[in-house]
Design a binder for these strands. Structure first.
Lengths: 144, 144
DNA sequence: CCATTCGTAACCAGTATAGTTACGGATGAA
DNA sequence: TTCATCCGTAACTATACTGGTTACGAATGG
C-alpha cells in the first residue's frame, strides 16, 4: 500500500542533515551527495517542506537551504504532512463508487472511512511523538 | 506513500458481503456487481484472502466463495496482511542506499527503521481492534 | 560582471494498479 | 455422460506515480 514513495524517508534525511549543520545553508547538490540522488530530486522534496514552512531557501551564490524553525519543534508528523500533501490517503477507498443498489455497496465506504481515519490517526499520533532532533541524536548514537 | 491501492478497501467490502450471507457461496460475478468492478479483479483479491486462510473457494456449478472462519475472528489487520503481502512497507526507505561516507547517510536508515516500525505497529494495533463483523454491523446501522 | 544556486518544466524508464479478454480445468446437476 | 457453471491464471492494455536526468530562466551576491 502505501504507497509507494520514499519521499518521507528522504525528507527526514535532509532535515537531519540541515539540523546537523544549522549555521550555514546547504546546497541541493551537497544534500544530494548524502542522499545519493540527483539535486533536482532534492529540490522537489525540499519545495514541499518549504511550502509547509519547515525550511527556507536562498537562491544565488552562497545560497542554499536552512531550517525555518528549531529541529526540536519539527515532528515526524509535520514532515509527513509536508511531503504527503493533498489527498494521498494511507488507505484509499474504491476507485469506482460501489453499487448503490446493494445494501453493503451503498454504505461500505462511509463505514470504512471511520476505521481508516482511526488507524491513520494512531499512525500520526505515533509520528508526532518524535522530532527531527530525536533522529539526529539517534544517528549520532549509532555513529558512536 | 502508501501506496497505493484500493485492495484493502475492496477486500473488506467483499468479506462484509460474505458475512452478510454466510449460508450460500457467492460467485465472483455477483460480488463484482456490488463492488462495481470486473470479476477477475475480485478473484485476484480473494486469491490473497484464500492464501491467508480467510476464505475458501469452490469451483464449478453452484460454487463460489465462503468465509473460512467466523467474521468475529477476522480483524482488519488480518485482512490488511492478507492483501498487502510480501514487503510493501507503509513507509519505504531510500531507493538507492545513502552515501556511507556521510555520517548521516551512513546511519539514517537504521534510525528511520525504528520509527517507521513503531508507527506501523500503532496502525496495525488499531486495525486489530476491529473485525469484519463490526463493519457489517455498522453498514446495517447506516442502512437504518 | 559573472559564477552560483534555486525553481521548474520536460522527458524518460521502471513499476504498480485495475480493467479486460481468454481459456483450461474442476465441479455438480440434469 | 453431458454440459453449463465457476474458479484460476495468463496476457494485454491504459493510466498513473516515482525517481532520475537535462535544460534553462531568474535571482543573488561577491
Amino acid at each position: 500500500m502505501s504507497t509507494s514513495s520514499s519521499r518521507f524517508a528522504v525528507a527526514i534525511h535532509v532535515l537531519t542533515l540541515l539540523t546537523q549543520n544549522p549555521d550555514e545553508p546547504a546546497t541541493s547538490e551537497y544534500i544530494a551527495g548524502s542522499v545519493n540522488t540527483n539535486p533536482v530530486v532534492i529540490r522537489r522534496v525540499l519545495g514541499g517542506l518549504r511550502r509547509a514552512g519547515l525550511v527556507r531557501s536562498q537562491g544565488g551564490a552562497g545560497g542554499g537551504w536552512r531550517l525555518a524553525r528549531d529541529a526540536e519543534a519539527i515532528t515526524l508528523r509535520d514532515v509527513y504532512h509536508a511531503v504527503e500533501e493533498d489527498d494521498q490517503a494511507v488507505f484509499p477507498l474504491h476507485h469506482r463508487p460501489p453499487n448503490p443498489n446493494c445494501p453493503v455497496g451503498r454504505h461500505i465506504q462511509r463505514a470504512l472511512a471511520v476505521h481508516f481515519a482511526a488507524a491513520t490517526r494512531a499512525l500520526e499520533d505515533e509520528l508526532a511523538r518524535r522530532t527531527v532532533a530525536d533522529v539526529l541524536r539517534e544517528v549520532r548514537a549509532l555513529a558512536g
